[in-house]
Nucleic acid binder design. Structure first.
Lengths: 224, 224
DNA sequence: ATACTCCTGACATTAACCTGTCAGTTGTCC
DNA sequence: GGACAACTGACAGGTTAATGTCAGGAGTAT
């Protein structure tokens, strides 16, 4: 077994977030624990957040590995711009992730390129206070991810204000308008809400699972 | 010399955009041309845009190399979010760069992770049509980069509309307001313009170089 | 057509990397 | 304190990767 392959397989094995003993990994990979210790050193040296506690075992934070990438100047600019924007407008978790990733990239680049990236930290786009629809994004994002029901206060274009309990399924854009697709319990049907017309979005304690007639797959199957 | 180091040095050597013969690179690196051919194969296989023409030599498009990176899930999310936003709001060059970089990343990731990244293409933030100050960003960005003078039509908060010829130096944000710092020829001094109050921004054919009293470094030196 | 330079395959040799073994140390958990 | 398991260094031997050499071919520019 090639070492590179083994390092990758060790990472896949440990993605479950559980603790793994070097002994068990070793027998799985057909090597000795000493080799596993070396592999862990190598993974850690290359930035993989793997940690080992004596008497306990090894644990790996959730990670995604990107192999070497080659970017054109303008791709690099897009990358820095995108991270700067995310660092400005996203919820707290995404903000700090964008910052930490930017730092990670800075750390691996030569000085000259880092200086160029630095310039973009002062030239990002004005979004946070002028984009009417974004104030609920963090809540919506979290609810979609967690499959958590929401209570929405929604102002239809006629001016009617309603309150809805929904299963949030997906966010998307249509041209320049941004939409939340959800299963709406008031209407017992799929509904698509414009984010700029949502007055409030409150996460409820109830979670949902896919249910006949109410899932995203079914919504998408009925589209023309 | 370690091969990895040599590959990196070959890329640095070729960053000048000139054509290089394998023979010259070889003697510089202390190897044979056959090894340089192999190195070029390896660089190309890893995505470096290097091309060789028989009878001519090798040439390299401008690139920035990122070594292997390890990202947490949420960093990966921030990356995809940032690229999706940049792909939505930036000028044509940055848009296509964001897209091509996203594709590059997709290409190197296992299927499962790619599917997660795909979901974000439908869940990005609404900025383009609601952010008052951004419509000139592309022009401003290009002018700063190219050191090109601009003609601005500016509405002061009093309502007075003026036309200015400026040397654009820097964009930045102050709290939630976005600003362009420039040397203004109407006032013969540095001025800072709010982007949301710029009516129009037109690039002029004149370029500028740093001139005593008018450069960004001097503006920053006079700040308290 | 000629000069030039990239291009590729094959093989023997060289260089670099990796592994298992062994011994000893250290920290966590109960 | 004892069981457990990570941790580290050193060395001999094994494995993999890389290189130079040689031969032959192909495309560009003049």
């Amino acid at each position: 077994m090639l070492r590179q392959n083994r390092l990758f397989e060790i990472m896949q094995l440990m993605r479950d977030g559980q603790t793994h003993r070097a002994e068990d990994i070793a027998s799985r990979m057909g090597v000795t624990p000493r080799t596993v210790y070396r592999d862990m050193d190598t993974l850690a040296a290359s930035g993989v957040p793997v940690s080992g506690a004596r008497g306990v075992g090894y644990r790996l934070a959730d990670v995604i590995s990107l192999p070497p990438l080659t970017l054109t100047d303008v791709e690099f600019e897009a990358l820095n711009l995108g991270l700067a924007i995310a660092g400005e407008v996203a919820d707290a978790a995404l903000k700090s992730a964008a910052l930490s990733l930017a730092e990670k990239i800075d750390a691996v680049l030569p000085e000259r390129i880092t200086a160029e990236a630095e310039a973009w930290k002062f030239a990002v786009y004005p979004f946070a206070d002028t984009a009417r629809g974004i104030r609920h994004i963090a809540t919506l994002r979290a609810a979609i991810k967690a499959r958590q029901k929401l209570r929405l206060t929604y102002t239809a274009q006629s001016g009617t204000v309603t309150t809805r309990r929904v299963r949030p399924l997906m966010m998307e854009h249509l041209g320049r308008i941004w939409l939340l697709t959800a299963w709406c319990e008031l209407r017992s049907d799929f509904r698509t809400f414009r984010l700029d017309l949502i007055e409030s979005a409150e996460a409820l304690p109830e979670l949902f699972t896919d249910e006949a007639g109410k899932s995203l797959a079914e919504f998408q199957a009925q589209k023309p």
